[in-house]
Design a protein around this nucleic acid. Structure first.
Length: 573
RNA sequence: CGGAGUGUAGCGCAGUCUGGUAGCGCACCUGGUUUGGGACCAGGGGGUCGAAGGUUCGAGUCCUUUCACUCCGACCA
């Protein structure tokens, strides 16, 4: 491609709302154009990168014997009603009506559609397993789209679905196989990523793992281990239960059961300094209002150690709620609770309490007495049976559940997510097959997603400098750029042109910068766009030399004109 | 949805308080000079000032309504 003829327009200025490098450079470099909240046009450069990423995704999936399909973007709402998600999915689902007043949705994900398709053809266990996928635009009416391609409303996603006769096959031939395949894909794309344990969220199912590209700008906090490869989203992270702080010999904490007058001691900080004791020994009650379908609300008390914090996703799952919201002190008082002094003993009857698993069997605790200005010390937890749940947010410095080493936080961009779905969709949608015994059974499913357009952003988050993008060889919009220093010098232009034609004939996708601009201007554009290498045809040709610039290191290497092609081929291999 | 803010040329912004000829930088067009790190000079084109209504002799500016967008939060396969 000749730059002078290309639809490539770079800019010195970034959009005023852009904060992330990926957003700034992708817009400035002429890869994408923002046209509305969370909506982007892909310009030729961006489209080329997108297609390259897409090809890698497809290649690896096809190797894993998944088959590509393409389902309708506009989907009839009936299927969504059948699965119960038409109402449940909420406002993210864009709904509309056609001229006949029939309801439709723009697909935000395609479980329903895919199950519907498969159930019409697959009737026997002999036809299983099946793994189908598509790479298609999705639309989710996000509350607050931001960060460029990172959180758009319309975005390109690869969504895959596998169908199996049983759980074991789903795990082996679906879930585990896809985990391997995804790792191959992200490795080929040159990403630094981690596979972490995740919350299954609204999609449902048992096990799920996320693929996180490590980046400070990531929206997710992930917990990783210094000693082993354990990693988990903070929403699902586990730890070795906290143990008693170590006190010097003879100063161990001892408590006798009893009520203690603690006037105006309401917070955990006040409590721990009042008793001169580590927060480990205190118990706090975190009150939330749980929201359920049909506008049902319920106040829930979550009891955790004073040194811990409530992890909201875990808490939401613990009570099977759709959402947790804050509850006011007045509301608590109306229910007969005394904020600051809430405990487990003597709670009003109809209050739901959930206790953190780590408190099971714990003793030597200080907890509210459900009585104004009183705390109970030396409290020991009775057997609450089913009320124990994992509720706490793992903290930096906690111990790894696998190897006991220290855990720490890092930030990640969610680029892939794989789920063991089970029969969550096949059952309500009555997608069934006959097993070996002629018995009808729902498909056991897995579902697998990759944010393809988000990958562009993730790659730039990991591969950029203060001058612009640094594409990897596998994802660059062109293999090579040739910069003509001054097109008015006929020999420069001629040599560059020959070089360009030569490389083109060898299958090298080359961008020839033959614009009527000064050298510095072209270099800046080269650096901004981030093609891996450039050949500079300039003043050194009088000595029969050209230069090759490495975008990553910005180092220049002089080679003779004759050896230039071979050297380039060697580099971009 | 809660809080804050912004809509003026393709992009980034000033002008609005205090009403009186629509501005700047980048980009674009013409001519010339320049040519190894985002050149310079001269000339030029481009705007129903987000929309609707109102006040006024006169509205980008004041008032009312409305729409859109952005930021923080909440939210989020």
């Amino acid at each position: 491609m000749r730059f002078s003829e290309a639809f490539i327009y770079t800019s010195k200025e970034a959009p005023s709302d852009a904060t992330l490098p990926s957003h700034i450079y992708l817009v400035r470099g002429g890869f994408i154009q923002g046209i509305g909240a969370g909506l982007y046009n892909f310009l030729p450069l961006g489209k080329k990168v997108l297609d390259k990423i897409r090809a890698i995704v497809k290649d690896e999936l096809d190797k894993a014997s998944a088959q590509e399909v393409d389902l309708a973007f506009v989907t009839p709402s009936e299927l969504w009603k059948e699965s119960g998600r038409f109402e449940k999915y909420g406002k993210e689902l864009l709904r509309f009506k056609d001229r006949k007043d029939a309801e439709f949705v723009l697909g935000p994900t395609h479980e329903e559609m895919m199950v519907n398709m498969v159930r019409q053809y697959v009737k026997s266990y002999k036809q299983l397993p099946i793994n189908l996928y598509q790479i298609k635009y999705k639309f989710r009416d996000e509350i607050r789209p931001r960060f460029g391609l990172m959180r758009g409303r319309e975005f390109l996603m690869k969504d895959g679905y596998s169908f199996h006769k049983d759980e074991a096959d789903m795990i082996e031939n679906g879930f585990n196989k896809m985990e391997k395949t995804y790792s191959n894909i992200f490795t080929r794309l040159g990403l630094d990523f981690r596979v972490v344990e995740a919350d299954s969220g609204a999609i449902g199912g048992n096990g799920s793992k996320e693929f996180m590209a490590l980046a400070d700008s990531g929206e997710d906090t992930i917990v990783v281990c210094k000693g082993c490869d354990y990693g988990a989203n903070i929403e699902a992270a586990k730890r070795v239960p906290k143990t008693e702080p170590i006190y010097p010999e003879g100063e161990e904490v001892e408590m006798n059961y009893g009520k203690f007058h603690t006037p105006n001691v309401k917070t955990i900080d006040e409590l721990s300094s009042f008793f001169h004791i580590d927060k480990y020994y205190t118990v706090k009650a975190v009150a939330k209002k749980a929201l359920y379908d049909n506008n049902i609300e319920k106040v829930v008390l979550f009891f955790i150690r004073g040194c811990d914090e409530l992890e909201e996703t875990k808490a939401t799952n613990a009570v099977n709620a759709n959402e947790l919201i804050d509850v006011s002190e007045d509301e608590l008082i109306d229910l007969g609770l005394i904020p600051g002094f809430i405990g487990l003993e003597g709670l009003p009857k109809d209050i739901l309490a959930v206790v953190d698993s780590e408190l099971k069997g714990a003793d030597k605790l200080i907890i509210g007495s459900n009585e104004k200005d009183y705390h109970t010390i030396g409290f020991q937890l009775p057997d609450y049976g089913d009320f124990y749940r994992d509720l706490i947010k793992v903290q930096e410095g906690d111990k790894c559940p696998n190897c006991q080493n220290e855990l720490y936080y890092t930030k990640g961009i969610e680029i892939g997510h794989i789920f063991q779905l089970g029969t969550r969709y096949s059952e309500p949608l009555k997608a069934e097959f006959l097993d070996e015994n002629g018995k009808s059974r729902p498909f056991v499913m897995g579902t697998y997603g990759i944010g393809v357009s988000r990958l562009l952003a993730a790659i730039i988050e990991q591969h950029h400098d203060d001058k612009g993008c640094i594409w990897t060889k596998a994802t660059a919009p062109f293999d090579l750029e040739i910069i003509v220093s001054n097109i008015k010098k006929e020999d420069e232009l001629k040599i560059a042109d020959e070089l360009y034609n030569n490389l083109k004939s060898k299958g090298i996708d080359t961008l020839l910068d033959d614009r009527k601009e000064r050298f510095g201007f072209k270099m800046k554009d080269f650096e901004l766009i981030g093609i891996p290498y450039a050949v500079i045809v300039g003043k050194k040709i009088t000595d029969g030399m050209v230069e090759i610039v490495d975008r990553k290191t910005l180092e220049k290497e002089e080679v003779t004109l004759d050896s230039a092609v071979d050297r380039v081929l060697e580099l971009i291999k």
